[in-house]
Amino acid sequence: MKLSFLAALLFGCTCFGQNKTDASLYMKAEKISYLTDIGSESGDLYSTIGHHGPAVENQWMALRIYFSEKAAIDVYNKAKAGLELKEAHWYPTPEQQKQGWGADYYKVGNTVGLGGIRLWDGEKVVPLNPVTNRLAHVGKTDTTSFMEMISKGVPYKGKKVDIKVRVTVYSDRRDAKVEAFSLTGEKVQFVTGINYFKDFETKKGANYIAVWGKHPEDVAAEIIPVGAAIMYDPKDYVKNTDDGTQYLLISKPSTYLTTRIISSSAKEQELNTLDKLEAFIKK
Rank of each mutant, 00 (worst) to 15 (best):
A88Y: 11
A71N: 12
T48G: 05
I65N: 04
K80P: 07
W120P: 12
S151E: 12
G100R: 00
T111S: 09
V108F: 02
S47Q: 06
K86R: 04
F67L: 07
P155E: 03
Q96D: 09
M61V: 11
A136R: 10
A62Y: 15
G116R: 13
V56A: 01
R64T: 05
Q59D: 11
L114F: 10
L135I: 15
S40C: 09
Y105I: 08
V154Y: 02
Y66Q: 11
A79N: 10
V125T: 07
S40G: 02
V108Q: 01
G53E: 06
E148C: 05
K140Q: 08
P94T: 01
Q97N: 03
G116Q: 11
N77R: 13
Y66M: 13
L135K: 14
W90F: 07
W60M: 10
W60D: 13
T143Y: 10
T48L: 05
G102F: 05
E95D: 05
S68N: 01
L128Y: 02
K70G: 08
G153L: 07
A62S: 15
E95M: 04
G100Q: 04
V126W: 12
I65Y: 00
Y46A: 00
F67Q: 09
Y105K: 08
G39V: 08
H137F: 06
G139R: 01
K152Y: 00
E123F: 12
G50M: 00
A62H: 14
G100D: 02
W90R: 00
D74T: 13
A72K: 10
R64Y: 08
Y106C: 09
G153M: 04
N129D: 15
G43C: 03
L83W: 00
